[in-house]
Amino acid sequence: MPEGSASLQLAVGDRVVYPNQGVCRVSAIDVKEVAGQKLTFVTMRREEDGAVVMVPEGKVLAIGVRKVASAE
């Protein structure tokens, strides 16, 4: 991610809310080559049905992904 860009610090195992998809758990953060460029992807699995969603790390905030609020 370019320096100075806002990002959401995620780790494998974090629970997040993905708008219009529901609650997901981060299952992987991997670098993949797409069209000759190396990009970091956040892979999330929906808790409702296990569907897998992959989002480029740089788009996580723009999409509206946020961490699940704690009970505290």
Rank of each mutant, 00 (worst) to 15 (best):
A28Q: 07
E47H: 03
E3N: 12
L8V: 09
K67Y: 08
K32N: 05
P19H: 06
L61R: 14
R66G: 07
V65E: 04
M1E: 12
N20W: 05
P19E: 08
E47P: 01
A11Y: 07
V68K: 06
V12G: 00
V16L: 09
A28W: 05
P2V: 12
D30E: 14
M54Y: 10
G13Q: 01
K67N: 05
G4P: 12
E57R: 06
V26C: 00
G64F: 07
A6R: 11
E33V: 13
V53D: 02
G22S: 04
V42T: 00
K67H: 08
C24M: 14
C24W: 15
V55G: 03
A28T: 05
Q21I: 15
T40L: 10
V68D: 06
R66Q: 14
M1F: 11
M1N: 13
E72T: 10
M1D: 12
Q37E: 12
L10C: 00
R15T: 09
G13D: 03
V42F: 06
A35E: 12
K59L: 15
Q9N: 11
P2S: 12
V55K: 02
V23S: 03
P56C: 07
I63F: 07
K38D: 04
A6Q: 13
R15M: 13
D30M: 10
L39F: 09
V34G: 03
V52D: 05
P2E: 12
L8F: 09
N20I: 04
E47T: 03
A71F: 10
Q37M: 10
Y18T: 05
R46Y: 03
P2H: 13
A51T: 09
A35C: 05
E3V: 12
A11N: 10
G50C: 02
V34S: 05
V12H: 00
V31C: 00
D49T: 04
R46N: 06
L10M: 04
D30I: 14
F41E: 03
E33D: 10
F41R: 02
K38I: 10
S5D: 10
T40M: 08
F41Q: 03
L10H: 01
A28C: 00
A69F: 05
G36V: 01
V65Q: 04
S27Q: 13
A11Q: 13
D14H: 02
V53Q: 03
K59Y: 14
C24G: 02
A6I: 13
A11L: 08
V42Y: 10
Q9M: 09
E33M: 12
I63A: 13
K38C: 02
A11R: 14
L39D: 05
M44A: 01
M1S: 13
V26P: 00
K38G: 03
R66Y: 10
A69C: 08
L61E: 13
G13W: 01
A51N: 06
C24N: 00
R46L: 03
G36A: 02
M44D: 01
I29K: 02
G36R: 02
G22I: 04
E72G: 10
V26A: 00
G58W: 15
A28S: 14
C24K: 00
V23T: 07
T40W: 08
A62E: 15
G50H: 04
E57L: 15
V55H: 04
K67W: 06
A51I: 09
I63L: 14
V31H: 06
F41S: 02
I29H: 01
A69V: 12
S70P: 13
R46G: 04
S7Y: 10
V68S: 06
R45Q: 14
V34D: 04
I29F: 06
D14R: 00
V34E: 06
D30A: 09
R25K: 07
R66F: 07
L8P: 08
N20F: 08
K59A: 13
V23H: 04
V26Y: 00
V65I: 15
P2L: 11
Y18S: 05
V60F: 15
G64P: 05
V42W: 02
V34P: 01
T43Q: 05
V52H: 05
C24I: 01
R25H: 04
R25N: 03
P19R: 05
S70F: 10
E57Y: 15
V53L: 15
A35K: 10
G64T: 06
V68I: 14
P2Q: 12
P56W: 14
R15K: 07
C24V: 04
N20A: 08
G50F: 03
R45A: 08
M44V: 04
V17H: 13
L10V: 07
M1T: 12
A35R: 09
R15L: 15
D49F: 02
V42K: 00
E47L: 08
S70K: 10
E33T: 10
D30H: 15
R45V: 15
V26F: 00
V53E: 03
R15N: 03
Y18E: 02
R45C: 03
P56D: 09
E33S: 07
V53W: 14
Y18F: 14
A71H: 11
P2Y: 07
R66I: 15
L39V: 15
T43K: 05
A28H: 06
L8Q: 09
G22V: 05
L10P: 02
Q21D: 03
G13L: 02
A35M: 11
D14P: 00
I63C: 08
R46S: 07
